[in-house]
């Protein structure tokens, strides 16, 4: 993948590192390149990683603009909507976060130019990583509506991807709809999530939930990174249609979730039956606990 995205010297330096351990590659214009390997950050050097800044490879601004050209396939307009949102999805669920100069017109953001920072996030498929919680999330073939929470980079998406695969593999009667707003869950349709999975890609949650439920009649809808303020109504509508929802949210733990403004409503209406908490203590995706609607731990 790096060979397609980056100049040959960087791709060669990165090939010295075990690809399965690379979580992020951070490129900042005229700054040393930083690689996150197994949760720890190092500088990228010609022979792999180093902790000495003096040995680090410095990122030329041209590398970043070249990367954007490659990702957009020389068609900036095709990724402009994503650029405005601050990230560009790439093949295999890779997510390229960008920071640069925002161009606005009449209060609307038109594009992001002069991109100076890029964060290449590499997802890893960890087979069976959701099995530790699977028994608490499925009962007699019936799936509980589940909210998966963790801090960023702690393995929510990896957990959800595996959960989709497990559900699809184990229960042929379940029809699963994946609402993949950012192309991370399905890797822009390059990851095979299973035979019973339909994917709506690059769509807003509202549109995908409404139209997906109406037209595809799913049993379970899975989505990534919900926002309690803007997506709650959509999820509530889906749940009242008898559809189960599995979603992820940024929150370090249950207490963090409780501090969120809309959480009281979430709890009162008992929209979710299970809350899965993940952390980074033994690597991304470590299960901290599964809680039920009354916040009692059902699997620790």
């Amino acid at each position: 993948m790096f060979k397609q995205l980056l100049p040959i010297n960087l791709a060669t330096a990165l090939s010295e590192i075990n690809f399965n351990l690379i979580n992020e590659v951070r490129l900042r214009a005229n700054k040393p390149i930083v690689v996150n390997v197994a949760g720890k950050c190092f500088y990228l050097s010609n022979i792999g990683v180093t902790s000495k800044a003096s040995e680090a490879i410095i990122c030329d601004a041209g590398i970043i603009s070249g990367l954007i050209k490659i990702v957009s396939n020389n068609s900036l307009y095709s990724i402009n909507d994503q650029l405005i949102n601050g990230y560009v999805p790439y093949i295999g669920g890779v997510r390229i976060g960008v920071a640069g100069e925002v161009v606005s017109e009449h209060g609307n953001i038109k594009t992001v130019k002069n991109i100076t920072s890029v964060n290449i996030r590499i997802p890893h498929l960890i087979k069976n990583c959701s099995l530790s919680a699977y028994g608490s999330l499925v009962n007699n073939g019936c799936v509980y509506s589940t909210l998966i929470l963790s801090s960023p980079g702690a393995g929510k998406t990896t957990f959800v991807k595996d959960l989709i695969m497990q559900l699809s593999k184990r229960n042929l009667n379940l029809s699963i709809l994946v609402v993949d707003e950012r192309g991370e869950l399905s890797g822009s349709n390059s990851i095979n999530l299973g035979d019973n999975v339909d994917v709506i890609l690059n769509s807003t949650k509202k549109f995908a939930f409404q139209n997906g439920i109406r037209s595809l009649n799913p049993d379970v809808v899975v989505t990534d990174e919900i926002n309690l303020d803007s997506d709650l109504e959509t999820i509530e509508e889906a749940l009242t249609c008898g559809v189960k929802v599995i979603a992820t949210i940024h929150a370090k733990n249950i207490n963090d979730l409780k501090n969120k403004k809309s959480f009281a409503m979430l709890l009162n209406k008992q929209l979710f039956n299970r809350y899965v908490v993940l952390n980074n203590s033994c690597g991304p995706g470590t299960l901290e606990g599964v809680y039920n609607e009354s916040m009692s731990c059902v699997c620790c």
Partner: peptide, 10 residues
């Protein structure tokens, strides 16, 4: 010049 702008510009 192809691919250098947003949809409108393009």
């Amino acid at each position: 010049s192809i691919g250098m702008s947003d949809v409108e510009g393009e």
